[in-house]
Amino acid sequence: MPEQGGIAIPDEIAAFNDEIVAIRHDLHRHPELGFEEVRTAGIVAAKLAEWGIEVHRGVGRTGVVGVLRAGNGGNRSVGLRADMDALPLHEETGLPFASESAGRFHGCGHDGHTAILLAAARYLAATRQFDGTVVFVFQPAEEGLGGARAMIDDGLFGRFPVDEIYGLHNSTITPHGHVHVSPGPVQAGADFFDIVVRGSGGHAAHPHAARDPIVASAGLITALQGIISRHTPPREAAVLSVTAINSNTAYNIIPETVHLRGTVRTLDGALKKRIAQRIRAVAEGVALAHDVRVEVDIRDAVTPLVNAAEQADAVAAAARAVVGDANVSTDWRPSMGSEDFSEYLTHVPGAFFSLGHHGDIPLHSPRFVLDDGILPVGAALFARLVQDRLPPEA
């Protein structure tokens, strides 16, 4: 078993790593947005079938599920998940395998996550050193489009039952090969909101003859921030951000409407609901104060991600075996970013963890570069988890 800077990589994974890197580069060159991952899904399905893994396509529209059984018919099962979608972002990395699709870019590293799970699947299919069933979940549309819910609604856990499930995400804020995992809340839930403020337009020189939605919107934005500072307990983390304001572009016209959009992030589902109620109440008050109409649409996008204690401990134990004690942290401070792996955890216990890599350009930047060096590390971690949780009979 060779070591990569003190990290133990199984010989089989090291032997085919160049092929896995090539697959990752190909996926990077041809990124696909959420629910459009037809080419990506085709590559995933073809590789799984080539390695003797049972393949199911079209789960949650463009998702792929692989099923692998080994051992003496053990009745336990473990799920492993990777996301496949890219971002609607123009790439500025200058890489030789940069995106060939304008305005589409794997700026979050999902091409790497897909390659990692493929490598783990190939290794487990070749070695079969476990007793039970592994379900490989290749998910579409993680970037805010509800891919996890789509797979669940399509019967994921009814058709492919698992006792527990695991997922990972690359990280540029921790050292190469460093694993972060903790029990409890680790990622925020998210709501998305659209608010339309409707007034009556007119000439900018005669504002008294109009009902100005811009002034009302300014008051609304300020009042919305008071929900966090004055209606949220100080010890409970919450964020409310207005991220877009769209209206008229002329200098001398008071417009009819202003369209606001934004997001709410919390670590507690009940708090998320209370904030949504306050947004609607504040909007009603602003409408009355400014004699305008305010229409509010709030969508529950992602559930808070809460790791189960047993499965978080299992990740930490597997990680210590692969990357060493010094490269494992179990004090992961919760992030206000969201990850729809959380949806799986509302159905079965599991854990989500981060894997650090070289590079300091953040996720979702047009210059983000994934370090290929983490591909065999992530694969080894997934494989070790399966072997630990589904140990073969002696």
Score class of each variant (00 low, 15 high):
99 S>C: 08
100 E>M: 13
101 S>G: 00
105 F>S: 15
105 F>E: 00
111 D>N: 14
111 D>S: 10
115 A>F: 07
123 Y>H: 15
124 L>T: 13
125 A>R: 01
125 A>V: 05
126 A>M: 01
127 T>K: 15
128 R>L: 02
131 D>A: 02
132 G>L: 07
133 T>V: 14
136 F>W: 13
136 F>I: 06
137 V>R: 03
137 V>M: 13
138 F>W: 11
139 Q>M: 12
139 Q>K: 09
140 P>M: 11
142 E>N: 11
143 E>P: 08
144 G>A: 05
145 L>Y: 04
146 G>L: 10
146 G>Q: 12
147 G>D: 12
149 R>M: 02
149 R>P: 00
149 R>N: 13
150 A>M: 02
150 A>H: 02
154 D>W: 10
155 G>W: 05
156 L>T: 08
157 F>G: 00
157 F>A: 01
159 R>E: 04
160 F>Y: 15
160 F>D: 03
160 F>E: 06
161 P>K: 15
162 V>I: 15
162 V>K: 02
165 I>V: 15
165 I>E: 02
165 I>M: 13
166 Y>M: 10
166 Y>P: 03
167 G>P: 09
167 G>M: 02
171 S>C: 10
174 T>N: 02
175 P>G: 09
175 P>F: 06
176 H>D: 05
177 G>P: 06
179 V>D: 05
179 V>G: 02
